[in-house]
């Protein structure tokens, strides 16, 4: 009984130390990646390939999710606001919800699920099949070659995808609101123009940029430090998606609080 308790405490202690060490290693990895980003030249071709992979190839799924999110917001918004005779405000409600909150967060979660897992798996497989060792043996810094382009692409793509999500979402809301719920099309647009300020858009873009940074950092780090074999890649990919998603939601709360204080 005592031995089991001691072993449990030992295991707990080991896990805590390992978690703190991993946290520290992830920061060292980030600093190395940032140094690689700043030490020019960075291959434009490599960045472009990642922009295609993370950004362009996510367009369809982001548009689909955006359209249906906007549509759902229209149905729910019209239902709630009509109780107060304020259904004319459905448009601004959709637009502000999307721009300030839903588009940055949902875009980030979708990109993490789609591209984050792919980045972790790709880098993890490169590690276990010695491709990263091969790079190093050819005098190429794997952080500069593999991680820096992905970090840059993540920061570029996330705000752009968020903008697409927002526009398509407003389109979806407009279609459902005006065609199916008989809201006035002119008032729908006009109310959005009156209600949405530049600070709302900036707030959404800042959030997306930060989320893009977190997504790239976590995905690359987890791939680069993945364990041995298929199990190692599997574990790293799962951890990557979970850690990045939770981080986005936690950081979202703090960013929302800070940006609301700063801008409003």
């Amino acid at each position: 009984m005592i031995a089991v308790t001691v072993r449990s405490i030992e295991r707990l202690g080991y896990n805590i130390i390992e978690a703190i060490a991993s946290w520290g290693r992830s920061w060292i990895f980030l600093f190395k990646t940032l140094r690689a980003v700043l030490s020019l030249p960075i291959s434009i071709g490599l960045v472009f390939r990642q922009v295609l992979e993370i950004g362009f190839n996510s367009l369809l799924v982001i548009s689909l999710i955006g359209a249906f999110t906007g549509a759902v917001l229209a149905v729910q918004g019209e239902y709630t606001l009509s109780k107060f005779g304020a259904d004319a405000w459905t448009g601004p409600m959709i637009a502000l919800s999307l721009i300030r909150e839903l588009a940055p967060v949902l875009t980030a979660l979708m990109v993490i699920g789609r591209s984050g897992s792919a980045i972790t798996a790709e880098i993890g497989i490169m590690k276990i099949t010695e491709q990263i060792d091969a790079l190093r043996s050819m005098a190429i810094d794997p952080i500069k070659y593999l991680m820096a382009p992905r970090l840059i692409a993540g920061v570029i793509c996330m705000p752009l995808l968020m903008a697409v999500f927002t526009l398509v979402g407003i389109g979806g809301g407009y279609f459902v609101g005006t065609v199916l719920l008989n809201l006035n099309p002119g008032a729908f647009i006009q109310q959005i123009r009156a209600a949405v300020d530049m600070v709302d858009i900036n707030s959404g873009l800042i959030k997306s940029t930060v989320f893009g940074f977190i997504f790239s950092w976590v995905s690359c780090y987890k791939g680069y430090t993945c364990g041995f074999g298929a199990v190692g890649v599997n574990k790293a990919t799962t951890q990557s998606v979970v850690i990045a998603s939770v981080s986005v939601l936690v950081v979202d709360y703090f960013l929302t609080s800070i940006l609301t204080k700063l801008f409003y």
Binding site: I125, M126, T129, E130, Q131, D133, A134, S137
Partner: peptide, 11 residues
């Protein structure tokens, strides 16, 4: 120059 065990070619 290194020939790795599994060749380690870039996929």
């Amino acid at each position: 120059g290194i020939l790795f065990q599994g060749a380690a070619l870039f996929d």
